[in-house]
Design a binder for these strands. Structure first.
Lengths: 145, 145
DNA sequence: CTTCGTGCAAAGTTTTTGCATATGA
DNA sequence: TCATATGCAAAAACTTTGCACGAAG
């Protein structure tokens, strides 16, 4: 895989016949700054609108879909929304049911082999989502922020 | 684990201090009939309303939450909705992006060990979601039903 | 110049909430 | 009796759609 950089995203969009627009460049800038990390369409919107004030959530959804179709970001659903991430290494996403924070957790290689040996199924995407209490929230009472 | 039966769900609700209502019994009847299987709140609603015509989706959500809190069903999010299932064995859920069908897929025990050895995290729930093309849809053109 | 993307408004889905009434334990 | 559940309506949260205009290639 190419090193993460804005060019990586731009090239991937071009290869998939997407046009390069100022709005897309701003979303790329945001996404690239969040490596590794997890973000929602709303997160991207709130950040990018500071530079592109006329942009709308619908356009953010469009752009994130393009970046995903170009193979540069992954998505998974949790807590009622779609989360995006740039981490292409196979991993789990641990979601703390107390504070809501999402943390990447490592997974052994054996599982990857398992998943590639499913008779009859062509696996294109895998998401492993764990929930529970994170280290910081263990023994601490509080509400999700 | 107890054998799956309506009593299993009723007992679990009682142990968690939930009341047994006719509406809950009908949802239990539905859930128990879908073992193994995957269903949404809407699926339950459409079935149960035939016997309990005044029931509403809000009540279905309430009951499914109670059954989940009582530890009898699991849930995961995919395709924009929450799916419920009774399968308590650790497994993956393969979602065909062509026909939408969800299929349980077996996972080796190694992963379970991995997931139980996450330093600092208390794992309460795990969902492994795979997407791609199922056997039936491989090589077949069509739209999701 | 032609196709694709953006901005806007509106609608579609799924899920939650508040409250009065009804009911299980 | 009394805490909890139900039914209803309304709202909230997230995502998609249609269309006219604008911009990239």
């Amino acid at each position: 895989m190419l090193e993460m950089s804005k060019e990586y995203y731009v090239n991937a969009l071009r290869e998939s016949k997407f046009k390069i627009t100022p709005q897309r460049l701003q979303v790329i800038k945001y996404v690239n700054s969040k490596t590794p990390g997890h973000f929602t369409a709303e997160d991207v919107y709130q950040s990018v609108r500071k530079i592109e004030p006329t942009i709308t959530l619908a356009t953010i959804y469009n752009i994130l879909k393009a970046l995903r179709d170009a193979g540069t970001i992954n998505s998974f659903e949790a807590n009622g929304t779609t989360w995006f991430e740039t981490n292409h290494e196979f991993h789990g996403n641990f979601i703390c049911s107390n504070c809501g924070k999402i943390t990447d957790v490592p997974i052994s290689n054996e599982l990857i082999n398992d998943l590639n040996s499913l008779d009859g199924f062509t696996v294109e995407n895998v998401s492993l989502i764990l929930s529970g209490t994170c280290e910081k929230c263990s023994g601490v009472k509080g509400k999700q922020s």
